[in-house]
Every structure is written in C-alpha cells, then in structure tokens.
Simulated scan of single mutants.
Amino acid sequence: MARLLLVLAATAVLLLAAGATAQQQGCENATFPAGRSFARCNTLPVLGASLYWTYHAANGTAELAFRAQSDATGWVAWGINPGGAGMAGSNVFVASPGGGGAVSVLTTILRTTSPALDNTTLSFAVPVPPTAEYAAGAYTIYVTVALPGNSTQQNTVWQAGPLSGGAIMAHRMSGPNLQSVKRQDFLSG
C-alpha cells in the first residue's frame, strides 16, 4: 500500500510539472522587437493571450507586454483591477488600429460593465507611456506600471472584440470573454 501511494504521489508531481511546463512553452519562445525581453511569461487561459513581464522590486514596477490574437480590424485590452476581481473597476490599456497604419493605445478606467471608453489617467502610476504594435495576427501592448499598493499580487483582466467604422464595440458576453480574469503574481508567476 505504501509503495502504491509513493507511485501515485510521484505520478501527481510529474503531471503537475508537465502541466506547468506546457503552459510556459506556449509563451517562452516569443520574440519582441528592438531587443525587448522579459523575465517571465504566462500563457493566459482564454482568448489566445499571453502576458510577459519583468518585476522590478526596487521600485515596485512591472515592465510588461500583453499579446493577444486578433484580426487587424479588432481590438484587445489588458488591465489591473486594484479594487477587486472582474471588469468593473479595472484600469485598462486598449490597443486598436490608429491612423496611418499605427496602433493606438487608449487608457481608461472601466467604472461599470457598460463603460464609456474615455481616455483618462489611471488610478496607479504608468511611468513609461504605453505603446502597441500589430504583427502576425496579434496585438502587443507594452507598458510599465507601478503595481497598485506595491503588491505583486494583482487582479488582472483582458479582452478582445470588434470594431465598427473604427469605433471600439462591445466584446462577446459569453464563453471565453467572461472567463478572462486572473489573479496574477508578478513575483513568482
């Protein structure tokens, strides 16, 4: 009986390690322009998204890249909700097509679940203004944030949705779009 328990325990450890490795393999081979690199990454569970970051303990900031699959006529967003889990209250960065082939980044606070997308100052510091690019079927948002409350544990959200006539439209209200929340540990991953 003890031998069987030992074998089952060893098998469980191997399966957990394999799962963690498989999740990391989804993002670890990503490349970024201009010599950008990040210490850690997570393949997020829905919407074809990944988060890459380097945490700087000396000043409580995280330098990050959020990448999500989208066609060129859509938008993607990533953010932190300093007050709780879910969309309402989140401070987000929204990437969408800008003029002349550029990608624009809107910063906004989602005060409700039916927000007005006004470009506003976020409730936490953003020491380096966000930028974004579109390549190979994905948007990538680059930003450095001062982690709210100087905490490495943050509630994060992300989304993807359509545009209509250049305007950001609501995302789907089912399936993966309602599952795009995660408690992110910027220290250990």
Rank of each mutant, 00 (worst) to 15 (best):
W78Y: 13
A136E: 10
V143L: 05
E63T: 14
L147T: 05
L163F: 02
V103H: 05
A85H: 10
A49R: 01
A22R: 02
V7Q: 07
M169F: 00
S90M: 12
G26A: 02
D185V: 08
R3F: 09
N150A: 15
Q25L: 10
S37Y: 01
Q154D: 09
G161I: 04
V181M: 11
S70P: 07
G19C: 04
L64C: 11
N177E: 07
Y139W: 06
M173L: 10
T73K: 13
Q184D: 14
S151M: 07
G89Y: 11
N81F: 14
V145S: 10
A39D: 10
G149V: 08
E28H: 02
M173S: 11
T121V: 14
V181S: 08
V13N: 00
V128T: 15
P82G: 15
W75P: 08
Q153K: 10
A85Q: 14
T31C: 01
N177V: 00
L187C: 11
G98V: 08
T31N: 02
T107C: 11
A88P: 15
T31R: 02
P33W: 02
Q159I: 03
A85S: 15
T152K: 07
W75F: 07
Q24K: 10
A136H: 05
L122Q: 11
L51W: 00
A22E: 03
P97N: 11
V103S: 12
Q154T: 09
F124R: 06
R183T: 14
S164L: 10
F124G: 14
V145C: 06
F186I: 08
R67N: 04
Q25G: 04
T144A: 13
G35V: 04
S188P: 07
C27T: 02
Q179I: 00
A9W: 02
L117F: 10
P162H: 05
S151R: 12
I80M: 13
V126W: 01
G100M: 07
N59W: 04
I168F: 03
